[in-house]
């Protein structure tokens, strides 16, 4: 276990270094995943390129379409961000259950995404927002949808030397809300047994679903969007029946494993329960019945 640590001062320098060192290099920001993986012998990079202090990559900006989150934004920043306390509260709810404060003070959203853990808590809410990632690299800049970016457990479409530079998503339509639910064995410091995010838009009367977007984590090799469940809600009356049906369809779409944390059977059951709950919570929020 040994490597060189590099501290580039600009994005261009970081990308150049990554290009120079090739597959033996890893970017590191908060390091809360990378250092543990190195210590456990899961990865053995020869070069770590510290991007944690690169200018312009941290913070949350309102844009014409919605929001751009810098990849170096910490969870604690997301959690406390005023603009996310309303309809986008799934972002706050997911950020608030990643590790303890010590991790959330330094772990970055970008790191959580590129780490591509199937149980990453922050990925499902972003999936329901149809987030896209801006990526810089030796071959130039590109933009990719988050749902196309994560390709398997620990796998992404990130090429050698490429770096996420922004996470962007559009504002929600009127009469919309989001919600995030997670189950684990404890009430904190948990890797999700299952987590679910929902984004729901109702019609002006607040009774009928216009559209719904769902994402499920820790119930398959990657966080997934259960499309049949989402489609089942369109045009339906918002309520227990349609939400429960969506939960059942989402459970059918999931492909969880059994491990020391939970059985596949229990995970599938939780997907159904949490999808129903997340949709219910969204509807309550739209009605102003709950924060």
């Amino acid at each position: 276990m040994s490597f060189d640590l590099h501290r580039p001062s600009s994005l261009a320098e970081a990308v150049a270094l990554a290009g120079l060192f090739g597959p033996g290099a890893r970017f590191i920001a908060g390091g809360t995943d990378v250092v543990i993986q190195i210590n456990r012998g899961k990865i053995a990079p020869a070069h770590l390129i510290d991007i944690s202090l690169l200018p312009g990559l941290a913070g949350i900006a309102a844009t014409a379409e919605g929001y751009a989150i810098g990849p170096l934004t910490t969870y604690r920043t997301i959690e406390r961000h005023a603009a996310f306390q309303g309809p986008l509260s799934a972002l706050v709810e997911a950020a608030a259950v990643v590790g303890g404060h010590q991790v959330r003070n330094i772990a970055t959203v970008g790191g959580n995404i590129v780490n591509a853990s199937p149980a990453a808590d922050f990925v499902p809410p972003l999936l329901t927002l149809d987030a896209v990632l801006d990526i810089a690299g030796p071959q130039g800049d590109r933009t990719v949808a988050l749902r196309d970016f994560i390709t398997g457990p620990g796998k992404t479409s990130l090429g050698a030397g490429e770096l996420v530079t922004a996470i962007r998503f559009a504002r929600l339509a009127a009469n919309s809300a989001t919600a995030f639910f997670k189950e684990g064995r404890r009430k904190a410091m948990e890797i999700s047994v299952v987590c679910v995010a929902a984004s729901l838009t109702l019609d002006a009367s607040g009774t009928r679903c216009v559209s719904a977007r769902l994402a499920v984590g820790a119930a398959g090799p990657t966080a997934l969007r259960p499309e049949r469940a989402e489609a089942s809600l369109a045009g339906q009356a918002a309520g227990l029946t349609s939400f429960r049906d969506a939960g059942r369809l989402a459970a059918e779409a999931s492909s969880p494993i059994s491990d020391v944390r939970a059985s596949a059977d229990h995970r599938r059951h939780l997907v159904a329960v949490l999808v129903e709950r997340a949709l219910t919570r969204c509807a309550e929020r739209i009605a102003g019945a709950r924060p």
Binding site: L5, R7, I28, G31, T32, V35, N39, G100, Q102, I106
Partner: peptide, 25 residues
Amino acid sequence: EAECGVCTVLLEGKAVNSCILLAGQ
């Protein structure tokens, strides 16, 4: 592994786990 918190220090005033923070950072 940042699970127990006994190694907590403040980095620029914010609590972090010093056990997984590279000194070079």
